[in-house]
Design a protein around this nucleic acid. Structure first.
Length: 263
DNA sequence: AACACGACCTGGTAGC
DNA sequence: TGCTACCAGGTCGTGT
């Protein structure tokens, strides 16, 4: 159930584990493209990158394997002779005997092979990376000014900012003291600057937490190390002011916020 | 443009 | 124990 920080942790781990690895054989269950297994055979893993919540594995010859983990996906190198989990949706036997496993209990995740041009258009459909120099307070102000959406939904829109999800959007709004239902274009310069800083701070801390907690197989337990203030804490006291955290629905999804801190 | 809702999937947990 | 209902870190398509 990963957002940017968890996907970043997955990518960093894969980058360490898979440098130069070669795919001997690919198995994809319920693949959208039946030719995919054959096209992946013998490919060398060149780099592992992240764009928003996408894992991008460059295989050379104008081919990029794009993996989206959606809600429950995980991607990791399995040691040689280790058992494949029953929830594996795809696996890639490597020349050294290990396997790269796409484990996804809910099977909502996606794998596809893209050309550089297709990757370019995917990337163009996404907003800036929030931890890059492209994500400035000025950018956030300009984008927010063009949207009447509730700010929480604006933050979840991947075409505006790439990588925020339900947890860290809520946490960033709490840190910035902004009510999640306020229209994006109704926020003043000061609050947008605070929100910009909060997004960056929350994500930087969450990346650290996710990388420390993430070990590959198993769960993302970054929630155990990231100090969640509001997410999933309905009815519990806000760590800042003690008021009870509320849960509302926005676009059918839960938003948690503190009625004392967030106006 | 914005919103509501369902679809895609499976599993965990709270309540009876 | 077993059943039901609801919840879940995401995205896409359809209809209003």
């Amino acid at each position: 159930m990963p957002e940017l920080p968890e996907v970043e942790a997955v990518c960093r781990k894969l980058r360490r584990d898979l440098r130069g690895a070669r795919i001997r054989r690919a198995r994809l269950l319920r693949a959208s493209d039946p030719r995919l297994e054959r096209r992946l055979r013998g490919r060398r893993i060149e780099t592992v990158e992240r764009r928003g919540k996408n894992v991008l594995i460059r295989l050379g010859r104008d081919s990029v394997l794009r993996v989206h983990l959606r809600m429950t996906g995980n991607l990791y190198a399995l040691p040689a002779a280790a058992n494949l989990p029953g929830t594996a949706r795809a696996w890639f036997e490597l020349a050294d005997g290990r396997a790269l496993v796409f484990d996804d209990p809910r099977a909502l995740g996606r794998i596809e092979l893209l050309s550089e041009a297709e990757l370019e258009s995917l990337s163009a459909s996404l907003g800036p990376e929030p931890l890059s120099a492209a994500f400035t307070a000025a950018y956030l102000r300009a984008a927010a000014a063009r949207s009447r959406q509730a700010i929480k939904l604006f933050l979840l829109d991947q075409s505006k900012i790439a990588g925020l999800g339900n947890i860290y959007a809520a946490e960033a709004l709490h840190r910035a003291g902004v009510h999640p239902a306020r229209p994006a274009n109704g926020l003043g310069r000061k609050r947008l600057e605070r929100l910009h800083g909060a997004i960056v701070a929350v994500l930087e801390l969450a990346v650290q937490s996710a990388c420390n907690a993430y070990e590959g197989p198993g769960r993302y337990n970054s929630a155990e190390t990231f100090p969640v203030a509001v997410y999933g804490r309905e009815g519990l006291p806000c760590p800042e002011c003690g008021r009870r955290v509320r849960r509302i629905l926005q676009a059918g999804r839960s938003t948690y916020y503190c009625p004392g801190c967030q106006r």
